[in-house]
Design a protein around this nucleic acid. Sequence first.
DNA 1: TCCCATGCCTCGATTATCTACACATCTTTA
DNA 2: TAAAGATGTGTAGATAATCGAGGCATGGGA
Lengths: 111, 111
Amino acid sequence: MGKPSDLLQGTLEMLVLRTLENGPQHGWAIARRIQQTSGDVLQVQQGSLYPALHRLERMGAVTATWRPSETGRQARFYSLTPAGERRLEKERAQWRRLSAAVDLVIEGAKA
Amino acid sequence: MGKPSDLLQGTLEMLVLRTLENGPQHGWAIARRIQQTSGDVLQVQQGSLYPALHRLERMGAVTATWRPSETGRQARFYSLTPAGERRLEKERAQWRRLSAAVDLVIEGAKA
DNA sequence: TCCCATGCCTCGATTATCTACACATCTTTA
DNA sequence: TAAAGATGTGTAGATAATCGAGGCATGGGA
């Protein structure tokens, strides 16, 4: 059960933005969804998630409103902004480029 | 020209160990080789490389000796130890697992 | 002579993440 | 009824890898 640290720094924001492409969600649901979608490989710590959400809000990539959740409790729902979508696209492209580059190095034939 | 930070933290050690699978090399050559092998996408900063090399040496994953380089100058050649090989295998497996998980999340179908 | 490539290294700052908490409500279980 | 667990948001302090910028030294070419 690897933590999104280890080598995934900076990737958390991308994961969060990507999850919000499916529509507005509150923090707890975002964390759960990432874990599920990744086949239980990635788990997002609350101490990383909320600061990341606040960063994204400060930079205008997401907006947030208080609304009752499915269970009737008050929860903070985050939505992607156009700026957030653009940011996601950039980070996604960056990820593809860099992870492909790492693969080239580590999977390449010896000698 | 992405920096191996951005999302590659912790990956540097793996890249270095992988490069040493091709035989002993000095720091400068390791950096150059990673850059070449990655198709000029990854570039290793000296301020990251040497601390990483020293960490790996302290933990016994590599050994180092001074020898003249191809150009005749004294250089510090690093070699993989058995412990380093084991570490590389673990990190390589970890990388595959986690990068595949990230791909699952970000490439998955919407909704 | 001056510059550039080679080659090693350190220092301070940045920054995201982690662990571990605190707080609140609602539901389930003993 | 009381305890426990799930839901849900958040902060505080510490950690640690990386970065940028610099220093130092040698050798070769212009």
